[in-house]
């Protein structure tokens, strides 16, 4: 019990004192995960909309791939990205291994199927009669897409939450492709693992609380946005 209380006290101390290392780790966590979620959103919404709206040969296979990807273990993603970015790997020439960019790539691969899957499902669930009415009103393809995304904004915000949640909390891939290098690729999750292995439970708990607060604040903002648009 003392351990937990000590952890909580330490967390507030670190936050209030503005410990530079903690701030750097928190900042990098947030930056990597937000960029990865942003990229996944752009690709995932486009891809999910395309799969949701069109019928083509191999569609079912693609859908099953997306669904499988939604449950892909981060360590497997980390392994694949490591192999690709390894010095002797196919993309080794880019020299991205053990950089935040490698972590962004890995996190993109983790969140992309989640955002694609959510988008696909919400587009497919959209009332086909309403789609027909939009077409009948004289919508061009672009106007139709814009309206579809507007009308499905609630599930799409849920996709953003799920996508961000999956990457901010993952540790396996970040550890494998980032290397947990202090000052360079150390993020909250990898720092927690490190401090835990060193027996610094107090610091580990403190970082855990910061991570939870971060996740809560981002989700709170998204939830407020979601509920506002629901009321509209």
């Amino acid at each position: 019990m003392d351990l937990i209380i000590e952890g909580i006290v330490q967390a507030f101390k670190l936050l209030l004192q503005g410990d530079p290392e903690v701030l750097r780790v928190t900042g990098l966590s947030l930056a990597v995960s937000l960029v990865a979620t942003g990229i996944s959103l752009f690709i995932g919404i486009s891809l999910g909309t395309a799969i949701g709206l069109t019928r083509f040969w191999g569609r079912r296979f693609l859908v099953s791939l997306v669904n499988t990807g939604m449950g892909a273990p981060p360590v497997v993603v980390g392994l694949i990205v490591s192999v690709m970015l390894w010095r002797s790997g196919p993309l080794g020439v880019l020299r991205l291994m053990y950089t935040p960019y490698a972590m962004i790539i890995a996190q993109c691969i983790i969140s992309l199927p989640i955002i694609t899957g959510f988008t696909m499902a919400s587009i497919q669930q959209f009332d086909p009669k309403l789609r027909l009415q939009i077409t009948a009103l004289g919508a061009s393809r672009v106007q139709m897409l814009a309206l579809l995304l507007r009308e499905t904004r609630l599930p799409l915000l849920a996709a953003v939450m799920a996508g961000f949640g999956s990457v901010i909390s993952e540790v396996g891939a970040s550890m494998m492709v980032g290397g947990n290098i202090q000052g360079q690729t150390r993020v909250l999750t990898t720092a927690i693992v490190l401090e835990n292995s060193k027996g610094n439970f107090g610091l580990a708990i403190a970082l855990g609380i910061i991570l939870m607060l971060l996740v809560y604040i981002v989700n709170l903002v998204l939830t407020i946005a979601q509920q506002r648009s629901k009321a509209r």
Partner: peptide, 11 residues
């Protein structure tokens, strides 16, 4: 203009 059985209004 086309009108359907349902009113089909948007948000």
């Amino acid at each position: 203009s086309v009108l359907f059985q349902e009113s089909l209004l948007l948000s």
